[in-house]
């Protein structure tokens, strides 16, 4: 009995701790987001929030729905596998409202060299030119039509090395 009385203050402190723990458990129940743990140790709602972001690149299917004529032109040339937005940039806004949002006109002098300027680190089979020597300053579309770049009249081998006949996308045949 006496031992209990003399340890009374310890029990008081224990009571304070227990109260603290109870408050913590209560607060925790209120504050943990509802969807937490739905799929794993994270907020399940986060998935939908991340997925809800609007797209900027429309995707080539959207382009080809309207611009099938360009697709036909591309099919004839080496750029057939180059998606529209690789050159024209993100066009989701244009796809949503084709009338009022117009894609900017492209400058081939800037655009083509992004891929085709010669660089020793590029794959040997990829068509490359030293632009300064190749066109003596003329814009590329003086001779090449970007959607089907081979020059109609001449030989394909004229401007590029013989090994450049195919851009060869896809490892499978």
């Amino acid at each position: 009995m006496n031992a209990f009385k003399d340890a009374g203050h310890i029990f008081r402190l224990a009571a304070v701790f227990v109260c603290g723990i109870l408050v913590f458990v209560g607060v925790r129940a209120v504050l943990v987001p509802k969807s937490f743990g739905q799929y794993g140790h994270y907020r399940g709602d986060a998935l939908a929030e991340i997925a809800a972001r609007p797209v900027n690149f429309a995707g080539h299917q959207a382009c080809e729905d309207c611009h099938s004529d360009v697709l036909d032109k591309k099919k004839a040339g080496k750029h057939v596998h180059v998606n529209c937005e690789a050159c024209h940039g993100a066009q989701a806004k244009h796809a949503e409202d084709p009338a009022s949002v117009q894609p900017a006109k492209l400058d081939t002098a800037v655009l083509c060299v992004r891929c085709h300027e010669a660089n020793i680190a590029k794959p040997k089979s990829f068509p490359q030119v030293a632009s300064a020597d190749h066109s003596s300053g003329l814009p590329c579309d003086t001779c090449h039509q970007p959607h089907s770049p081979a020059i109609d009249t001449g030989e394909t081998a004229q401007a590029t090395t013989p090994a450049t006949t195919k851009v060869a996308p896809g490892g499978t045949k």
Binding site: N2, A3, K5, D6, A7, G8, H9, I10
Partner: peptide, 9 residues
Amino acid sequence: NISEHALHV
């Protein structure tokens, strides 16, 4: 309570 017993505890 700071009796000898309590302090011993």
